[in-house]
């Protein structure tokens, strides 16, 4: 049986030690753990019996991480394919371009850099705040100039945390972009650099005015909007041109029940102009209620339900047939 050419030497000695395992290589990289985060709070809270992902031992956890890493590879073995030299006349690259072309950084490297920058922004905001570009990049989330007569519908469902984080992230993002740009600009003469900064600053200042489109509606108009909804929304004409129903009677009760909470222009404006989330913030994770996502276990051999557990190694199989098949491998790995 093919065991992918790996014999886990370390695991034989430590496999039964609860809560602790020998980690053979250099340990998980920052990005690797970030890509497969584990909710630590959960293990304590989860008193319900039944299998879940957080019940894994450290050894299983490590194997899982390695398996997932393998599933994300472009080739299953390491390859180094040089870019074939082309005959085209090589024109001169700018220093910036030369640097980019020479970079052999991977996505994980870039992500680590970015996470480090975020950490810096959190621990020492001053280090980032001093950057003029950060200051200018206040996100264009529409600040309502008028207090609406009726409070905006509440939708605090864990999204708000992300929303707040988004503003901060946007700032950091700008700082990162600035840093990336600055990195390359180092080589330029200082004077030139100063001039550019001024120009950029001026341009950006002018642009803030220009790019925050139309101003928010004055107070009385907002009130009117709330009163007369939905006909008078100015951003989204609700379902004016709603497609014909797919089945009879669709939507009607729903529309009626939903109308009161149709977003105000203010809400729409802030949604449509909110800055992007960071790479890690946009990654879907289990929410509080999703913590108990049912875990299905399959037969390691044939893929049917894994209803039988190998007493030696804990691998799950569907029945005696597959257990027998598994034994061969199990014995090679762990001995009799």
């Amino acid at each position: 049986m093919n065991n992918f050419g790996v014999i886990e030497v370390a695991s034989t000695a430590t496999k039964t030690t609860p809560g602790w395992a020998y980690v053979p290589d250099t340990g998980p990289s920052l990005s690797a753990t970030a890509l497969q985060p584990k909710n630590r709070k959960r293990a304590a809270r989860n008193t319900q019996p039944g299998l879940s992902l957080s019940d894994l031992t450290a050894r299983q956890e490590n194997k899982l991480r390695k398996d997932l890493e393998a599933l994300n590879r472009d080739n299953q073995r390491d390859v180094n394919i040089p870019v074939p030299s082309s005959s085209r006349s090589s024109h001169k690259h700018t220093p910036t371009v030369r640097k980019i072309l020479q970079s052999q950084k991977t996505f994980a490297n870039h992500l680590d850099d970015y996470q480090a920058l975020l950490a810096l922004a959190e621990s020492n905001p001053a280090a980032v705040v001093n950057n003029p570009l950060l200051f200018l990049n206040k996100p264009v989330v529409a600040t309502p100039q008028a207090k609406s007569a009726s409070p905006a519908p509440v939708r605090e469902k864990g999204g708000s945390k992300r929303g707040q984080a988004a503003a901060k992230r946007a700032a950091v993002k700008a700082a990162a972009a600035a840093a990336a740009a600055a990195e390359e600009e180092e080589e330029e003469e200082e004077e030139e650099e100063e001039e550019r900064k001024r120009a950029r600053q001026l341009a950006a200042e002018g642009e803030d005015v220009e790019m925050i489109d139309s101003p928010a509606a004055p107070p009385d108009e907002v009130e009117k909007l709330v009163e007369t909804y939905p006909a008078d929304g100015t951003i989204l004409p609700a379902y004016r041109k709603r497609p014909p129903a797919v089945h009879p009677g669709d939507g009607d009760p729903l529309l009626v029940s939903v109308v009161p909470s149709f977003p105000t222009d203010e809400e729409l404006r802030s949604l449509m102009t909110a800055p992007p989330l960071s790479y890690m913030d946009s990654r879907a994770a289990f929410g509080e209620e999703g913590e108990r996502y049912p875990i299905r276990v399959f037969c390691e051999m044939c893929g049917y339900w894994g209803r039988v557990k190998c007493m030696k190694c804990g691998v799950r199989v569907c029945g005696l047939d597959c257990l027998e098949g598994h034994r061969e491998e199990c014995v090679t790995r762990y001995g009799l």
Binding site: V259, P263, L271, R283, A284, F286, G287, F298
Partner: peptide, 27 residues
């Protein structure tokens, strides 16, 4: 989660996206 990846499936991904939006936009 069938391969141990700690992320919600596609339908729940959609629901998570909707959950941060006003209910009026859902239909």
């Amino acid at each position: 989660t069938d391969i141990g990846l700690r992320q919600p499936g596609l339908a729940d991904l959609v629901m998570q996206s909707l959950s941060v939006l006003p209910v009026g936009l859902w239909p």
